[in-house]
Amino acid sequence: MRVAAVQHDIDWEDRDATLRRLDGRVAAAAAGGATLVSFTEMFATGFSMNTHHTAEGQDGPIVAWMIDQAARHGVWVAGSLAMQDPGGDLPVNALCVVSPDGAVHRYDKLHPFSYAGEHERFGAGREFVTVDIDGVRVTLFVCYDLRFADEFWACARDTDAYLVVANWPAARRHHWRALLDARAIENQAYVVGVNRVGSGGGLDYTGDSRIVDPLGEVLAAGAGAETILYADLDPDVVARVRADLPFLPDRRTG
């Protein structure tokens, strides 16, 4: 399965302008052979705490745009957004993965980023989500989740690839790159990290999106500019690495 990581800028808190900016990216990725096309965290608005302005329902314009793009180009489309949560007092930072037939799979970010006050404006997710995409088991995470290795460990046996979408700032870019590599090596799985570029909310972003294989080798990387990264994810490679280097059974769980 070929994945396309779309590293892009965002028009701050301007959904419509950003979606216009991104028009054509799914088509380009599909033309490049991608089955899964991923945008970033809060990909249409930026990482804003202004949820009364940015949050919308699962039937809102952002998910509708994703559904249209997925159907039009015959690919899966992923990206997170501030989503109203009828079951909670606060909206959630929801990573949605939309299939070509319009099915929406949703993961709510487990760890709101309290350093930026996210916990005051967003509720925390409660469960892991893994989606089978053309035989590749893809487990979903958002940005700050990357710092919590135990969450990745908990899903490892049922995961071939982790998708991590982010608005990870330039000031901690080394952490982003190192943690993506570590999560791949620890769990002997692919890791696809998709981060934004540009500026927004007083922060600068350098992208540093990367796709890492189960041995920690970087298959594709980009920094600084808008780009699309591609890599082929093969579950047989994951199985072979884990058979040749059977580290996971040695992990203590208690």
Rank of each mutant, 00 (worst) to 15 (best):
A29K: 05
Q58K: 13
A34G: 03
L81I: 09
L90I: 03
Q84K: 12
H53A: 15
N93I: 12
Q84V: 13
A78I: 04
R72Y: 00
H52L: 12
S38Q: 03
Q69P: 05
M42P: 00
C96A: 13
D68V: 02
A70V: 06
D89Y: 04
H53F: 14
G60K: 14
D59C: 01
A55T: 07
A78W: 04
Q69E: 15
Q84F: 03
A44H: 06
L90Y: 08
A30F: 00
E56G: 14
G87A: 15
V77Y: 01
W76L: 05
S48W: 03
G33C: 03
V97K: 01
P100W: 00
L81A: 13
A28H: 10
A64F: 02
A29L: 00
S99G: 04
W76A: 04
A34E: 03
H73E: 07
V77H: 04
P91T: 11
E41F: 11
V75F: 07
T35E: 07
V63G: 04
N50I: 00
L36A: 07
M42I: 03
I62N: 06
P100C: 00
E56H: 11
S48C: 08
A71M: 05
A70K: 08
A28S: 09
Q58I: 14
D89L: 09
M83S: 15
P86H: 10
L90S: 08
V97Q: 00
V92F: 11
M66R: 08
T35N: 08
V77L: 04
G60M: 13
D85L: 09
L36P: 12
T51D: 02
A31P: 00
S80W: 03
G57M: 09
P86R: 11
